[in-house]
Design a protein around this nucleic acid. Structure first.
Length: 255
DNA sequence: ATGGTAGAAACTCTA
């Protein structure tokens, strides 16, 4: 089973690239973030034509998540128990016996902003819910744009980023708390090249200058970690014309 | 110290 995640920063703009990527990599599941589409505008017909079922929870202009899967999903969940949030950032579904949770974690803007507080509170509520999800589903994958670089290796210039949003100590603590629930960062289960990132700012030629962060993750429960054979970042789509600022991440699970 | 880019929407916000 191949499971992937990609923040597409507008599915309307990126649909052709998503179609190409599905065709090329044939994931069994692809989780999307920042679709920026209301559900009535979701390109379900195109996705179906490509051989995928689609679940989606979106809104106009901001946020929006989706789970595409070759086999029909079941037990969908859109609202996190105990978290009342008008922002569409969470979607969960069972696919092939795996509970897949697609997250678009709030960006946080800056550490002194209200949005940063919202990010930390949101993470605490999601973590509490994921404990229950893990109890109910030993085969759990939590994937998406976490907007957190877990450690120094995940930032092109850790000194410059220390204390900044996406790499501040409270955010990294929140990430570790999530891991402590019973999840593993699939990327670090394997030897990886240095300077492996999933996001590069559109500005200042950040991609060409390799000024990136690894903020998109695939976390797996222990039972999935046992059958996880690889985790890779595909930077090819970031080289395309009109790219998303994020690259897709994928794992192969021997299931 | 500030601005740089992109997307969506509506002359600004979010990332």
């Amino acid at each position: 089973m191949r499971l992937a995640t990609w923040n597409v920063n507008s599915l309307k703009v990126r649909l052709p690239q998503v179609m190409d990527w599905l065709q090329a990599h044939q994931p069994d599941v692809l989780c999307l973030q920042e679709t920026k589409l209301e559900d009535v505008n979701f390109p379900e017909r195109d996705i179906r034509a490509a051989g995928y079922h689609a679940q989606f929870s979106g809104q106009k202009a901001y946020n929006g998540v989706a789970i595409l899967s070759k086999t029909p999903p079941d037990n969908p969940l859109i609202a996190v128990p105990g978290l009342s949030d008008p922002q569409k950032r969470v979607l969960a579904a069972n696919v092939n016996g795996v509970r897949v949770v697609c997250l678009y974690v709030p960006n946080g803007q800056s550490v002194d902003s209200e949005k940063y507080r919202y990010k930390l509170d949101w993470l605490a509520a999601v973590m509490a819910w994921l404990k229950d999800e893990l109890t109910a589903n030993p085969r759990l994958a939590v994937v998406g744009d976490f907007n957190i670089a877990p450690d120094e290796r995940d930032v092109y210039d850790a000194k410059a980023w220390e204390g900044q949003v996406l790499f501040s100590a409270p955010e990294r603590k929140a990430f570790q708390d999530l891991i402590a629930v019973g999840l593993q960062d699939s990327f670090r289960l394997f030897d990886q090249p240095a300077q492996a990132f999933t996001w590069w700012d559109y500005r200042m030629n950040a991609f060409k200058r390799k000024m990136g962060l690894r903020i998109d993750h695939i976390l797996v429960s222990d039972s999935l970690a046992e059958v996880c054979r690889s985790c890779t970042i595909d930077i090819e789509p970031r080289k395309a014309e009109r790219p998303s600022d994020h690259a897709p991440v994928m794992v192969d699970l021997e299931i």
